[in-house]
């Protein structure tokens, strides 16, 4: 089993908390993993990505080769498209539909969504609205993780445990809210 995932977004959007959840869940299942992060200058509102590699065998490269990502999980629609060279033939592109506009030449958002729909396996999720319904816009990332969970080789229960672990210090209310967000995200796709 191997599961190569690219997480993408804009610096400050918190893709590393998604990575942390997947990481905890992977450890619980005794899988090998490597996770390359972006720190430093790009974190100031620039494009950021994390290469996340899960496997039942030791992982060699910290970077995913082109054409081998099973999943691109993006918390921003334009950033979803930036990593298409990495997407494998049967890979999934799962993205939040809400743009993060911090550049003057940001494209029209409908054009962006149309471009995303051209990808064979795509799932567009209005994570912001779903997160607001569950109680906090801050849970949008966890909604996205829920939506992408269909394409991540980890048991659902482990993802839930990982969410509990990540938000453990913040109290039972926050944990419950995020578990709800995770489930609401999952319900966005029926296999």
């Amino acid at each position: 089993m191997k599961n190569d995932i690219i997480l993408s977004g804009v610096g400050g959007q918190g893709i590393l908390s998604i990575a942390a959840v997947i990481g905890y869940a992977a450890v619980e299942n005794n899988l090998y993993l490597k996770q390359a992060e972006v720190h430093g200058m790009s974190q100031r509102g620039g494009d950021v990505q994390s290469h996340f590699r899960l496997s039942d065998e030791p992982v060699a490269s910290d970077l995913i080769p082109y054409g081998e990502a099973d999943l691109i999980l993006s918390v921003e629609p334009m950033e979803a498209l930036r990593y298409l060279p990495w997407l494998s033939e049967n890979g999934w592109l799962v993205t939040n539909s809400n743009p993060y506009v911090n550049i003057p030449d940001y494209p029209d958002s409908q054009d962006l969504l149309n471009e995303i729909r051209k990808v064979k396996n795509n799932l567009i999720v209005d994570a912001d609205t779903i997160a607001r319904k569950t109680g906090s816009i801050k849970a949008a990332n966890i909604v996205m993780l829920g939506a992408a969970s269909h394409f991540i080789n980890l048991p659902w229960k482990s993802l839930e445990n990982a969410v509990r672990k990540l938000f453990g210090r913040k109290g039972e209310d926050i944990i419950e809210l995020n578990l709800e967000a995770l489930a609401a995200g999952r319900d966005q796709y029926k296999a």
Binding site: R44, G45, G67, R82, L84, S88
Partner: peptide, 27 residues
């Protein structure tokens, strides 16, 4: 490294032209 070894490697899809650069900026 694959190229230097003379190996073929896979490739996904080209980045569409609609994708703009997003340089870092002051908060």
């Amino acid at each position: 490294v694959a190229k230097a070894l003379g190996m073929e490697s896979a490739y996904g899809i080209d980045i569409p032209d609609i994708v703009m650069k997003r340089p870092p900026s002051l908060c």
